[in-house]
Write a protein that binds this DNA or RNA. Sequence first.
DNA 1: TGAAAATATTTGAAGCTTAAAATAAAATCG
DNA 2: CGATTTTATTTTAAGCTTCAAATATTTTCA
Lengths: 164, 164
Amino acid sequence: MQNGAVDAREDEKRELRLWLRLLTTTKVISQEIRRRLRREFGATLPQFDVLSQLFREPDGLRLGELSKRTMVTNGNVTGLVERLETEGLVVRQALPSDRRVTITRLTDEGRAIFQRMADAHETWLKDMMSDVDPIIVSGLLAHVDKVIHSAQRHTSDDGTPDEA
Amino acid sequence: MQNGAVDAREDEKRELRLWLRLLTTTKVISQEIRRRLRREFGATLPQFDVLSQLFREPDGLRLGELSKRTMVTNGNVTGLVERLETEGLVVRQALPSDRRVTITRLTDEGRAIFQRMADAHETWLKDMMSDVDPIIVSGLLAHVDKVIHSAQRHTSDDGTPDEA
DNA sequence: TGAAAATATTTGAAGCTTAAAATAAAATCG
DNA sequence: CGATTTTATTTTAAGCTTCAAATATTTTCA
């Protein structure tokens, strides 16, 4: 028993190690999804993300809302939506009652294409996680939530317990 | 009990939901780490990642190796290392025995600065995960590994069971 | 009302990201 | 040996990313 100290030190790095694992997981999976989205739909992951948010809001969203939901900065959403509009998947329209606001919504074509993307996307994920016991998937689902909440509470930008 | 069908459908989306949660987690945490790295060290997350890999290889790494370990494309590593060299944190040197190869290693300054970054980084993570029971962290550590392995096995680029 | 503050979005600069093409230097083998 | 293939890295083009500064437009309230 000469490495008690090492175990203790390693044990203190639990959080760090979990973080590195989470990072690796999302890198591996999102690279694969990116590849497939590009190959099969000529789309990017952020574009898919935007379409996905708009899909569940038939009345459209203002850019600020879209920015929050996709966790993409405001400036970023501008270009993202611009490109999607060029492709004919979304439309932008000014809000007459408040001329600062732009509302974006899916076009019929955008809706149809997103449907196909979403189906493929779900299949890809089931495939990539097919070696993981469903029980474990469910367990992870619950526990990862705790990490999200903890992280959000200790973050400077959102859900801030700062400035009190 | 009228929503049995809904439950079943939802249940099929376990993997999808886990994926979205993982994505949210890494976005929240990495945004915070990015912010702090920038504020406190004027560095980016990919730069931190490169430094971290070089830190554990005193003899340096060839760019291709660095690219694999950081999961960053070759072309990307070129610019990343270039900028780090400008800052004096790493040096590049050609390998005389094979003139295609470039070896990169930390400078003494790079090593010292990385030490400080790494300490801060570990603290930030402990802080962000401080509301999560250590038992759960350890459990996640093990289970997330299963997801990584499954994903890697079902991916077109690495660990390919393709082309057999 | 009209100046100041708040809100919504866009722009700009620097850097990261990918995939794919280009360059360069070995290695293979006919 | 010398042409072909492989390997290592760089370059390029398009898009994403952040933060911060700039524009517009509304709101507040003195």
